[in-house]
């Protein structure tokens, strides 16, 4: 009884919060609600027995995304205030008292409800006990080089997905850099000595922690993505405190770090191809080592990419 109640409450809160987050009159509050939604979703992932994802969601889905949106909001607000005191058309949202608008909103609402109904009808018609691929995955797990099934899927069974995904990450940063110059957060560390000394301790620790998550990922929840997320968190902290510039001084080094995931993954794929005749088909018995190397490179790239996304553009001097 109690678990059902808990699940029910969680689900209700999630849905309600989602609605609030997107339709709150106060955009700032909406963003905060959105971040909270991410945390609740992480709980939902736990209830769905997906701890790997709970970790990733908390760090990336809620934390990093929230930070990205929040900093964008701050930037936009500042710009709006700077621009000749207009009542910031961007910030007012859909609350215009326009009849046609209201009508279309009602129409779209009805449409969405209908869509939801259809979706629910279809989803509930699915077989109650799905076959899934659990059995296959577990049967092949011993050959995969790792013992955490999720890692096995990510870096062996469906490694090709992950290769493309690392590509997406790199592409995202290339796209963002192509778009705009990042703004270094204007942190004056002389006024925040406590933060500085905290970060001096914490950042290296987080780096070690990221390595630990990478290592543990082979057998337990964790892996390159979670580790990368941790690294990204560290980087965001560094950027926030103004320390980031010191770490990102050398452009080519940074770019190499961003691309090393794709490069190592790609080269590994090619080498494996020459070795075994299959793209990303690791030689028998060596899968674990190959995965570790790929993951290590991916970790660096993921961490750097996600962290630099926070900068919102290419690092420039001013």
């Amino acid at each position: 009884m109690i678990p059902q109640l808990l699940d029910g409450t969680l689900v209700l809160v999630v849905v309600a919060l989602a609605w609030r987050a997107l339709n709150d009159r106060d955009l700032f509050r909406g963003v905060i609600e959105f971040i909270a939604l991410g945390l609740l979703l992480a709980m939902a992932w736990l209830r769905l027995r997906a701890p790997d994802l709970a970790l990733a969601e908390a760090a990336v889905g809620s934390g990093l995304t929230g930070a990205l949106i929040l900093s964008a909001l701050v930037r936009m607000r500042r710009r709006e205030q700077a621009a000749a005191g207009q009542p910031a058309g961007v910030a007012t949202g859909p609350w215009a008292k326009d009849r046609a608008k209201n009508f279309s909103r009602v129409l779209l609402g009805a449409l969405s409800v209908a869509m939801l109904g259809t979706l629910a009808w279809a989803a509930l018609s699915l077989p109650a006990k799905a076959r899934g691929l659990t059995a296959e995955a577990l049967a092949r797990l011993p050959d995969s080089g790792v013992t955490n099934p999720v890692t096995a899927v990510l870096l062996n069974f469906r490694a090709y997905d992950t290769l493309l995904e690392i590509g997406v990450l790199l592409l995202a940063i290339v796209g963002v850099w192509a778009l705009r110059r990042g703004e270094w957060p204007a942190a004056d560390l002389r006024e925040r000595p406590l933060l500085l000394s905290l970060l001096r301790w914490v950042l290296p620790l987080l780096a070690v922690g990221a390595g630990y998550l990478l290592w543990i990922g082979a057998s337990a929840p964790g892996g390159a993505f979670q580790g990368g997320a941790l690294l990204a968190g560290a980087l965001v902290l560094a950027l926030l405190s103004g320390l980031g510039r010191r770490l990102l001084r050398r452009g080519r080094l940074v770019r190499t770090g961003l691309t090393i995931g794709v490069l190592v993954f790609g080269v590994a794929g090619a080498v494996a191809l020459g070795w075994t005749g299959g793209l990303l088909q690791y030689p028998t018995g060596q899968a674990g080592a190959w995965i570790l190397v790929i993951e290590a490179a991916a970790l660096v790239s993921i961490g750097l990419t996600l962290g630099l996304l926070y900068l919102g553009g290419r690092p420039g001097e001013k």
Binding site: L199, R200, L203, P204, L205, A207, V208, A210, G211, Y212, L214, W215, A238, L243, R246, L247, L292, A296
Partner: peptide
Amino acid sequence: SSWIVGLPAVLAAAWISARLW
């Protein structure tokens, strides 16, 4: 065997630490 990852991680972290502090 964890030192396969640990050693590079520690060195990298030490490098970061040295850069920051």
